[in-house]
Amino acid sequence: MTQILTMVAQRLALGLLTLFVVSLIIFLGVELLPGDLTQAILGQAATEETVAAFRKELKLDLPPHERYIAWLGGILQGDLGHSLANKRAITELMGVRLWNTLFLAFISAVISIPLALGLGILAALYRNTLYDRMVNIFTLSSISFPEFFVAYILILVLAVQLGWFPSISNIGEELGFWERVYRSILPALTLTLVVVAHMMRMTRAAIINLMASPYIEMANLKGLPRARVIVKHALPNALAPIINVVVINLAYLVVGVVIVEVVFVYPGLGQLLIDAVRTRDIPVVQATGLFFAAAYILLNLTADVLSILTNPRLLHPR
């Protein structure tokens, strides 16, 4: 057990290190952007004095490393800085939107993960049959289309023609849980269609990969039905690669939602990022960027730990 705890601690430390490097990259990346920030915000007409005053207010007159340390120090204390556009604290600005993004990711995950695993297991069970081929064709085509295209097709069919769901997902805190779920269905479906193929194919491949193992033959020769052989004997040993792919897709559900949020006017982090880029609201861009990186690293870390935990050799040492 201590072995596993040490391992988790090591991974966590590595994750923090990665996050630190990412913060450097984000800061430098923004620093390297061409043009003067104050000029861009205040416009060409601004006088020298106002520009200088504004620079001082933003602390842009300080050398970069000092600003970086101040920024990092603020983050460590839970202060992400203030938006340039409306002067509000970024933590406050991100708060609601962060929950909205996580809510959407959660709904999509609840639909897509069981669906992908189920389809994958069935595809392995009925390998090379018509069903297997149809599932492959369908999921592969859905992943091949750009997200916005899938989104517009869904809007066209389910919102415009059938009128089942709203085409704009303007959710707010005043709405009840189910109302929010209802309004988030279309973006969640779009995301599901994008991620399900990857997970389903990995589930299928990981299981089929094991079907030639002697212990699978043994299970067959015990007279167990095929479904039981796959679920009880192949799946537990195929979990490590499946978990990895599932988590990578979960990370995508959190950080890759920008386009989908824009299409459905969903008030999430992606929208915030797009708006901030448009208005050159640098502190907001930096903060959201850092949050996306953190989410990505944390999820991948979870994947590593989980896939190691599914290995009985590590869980039950000699």
Binding site: P214, M218, A219, L221, G223
Partner: peptide
């Protein structure tokens, strides 16, 4: 019919027990 036979009336012992036992159980 064969499934009901296997494991019950006819059983199999494989060459490499290390490979024929499922590592997960």
């Amino acid at each position: 019919y064969k499934r009901d036979l296997r494991g019950v009336r006819i059983a199999y012992v494989a060459q490499s027990a290390a490979a024929a036992f499922n590592p997960a159980h």
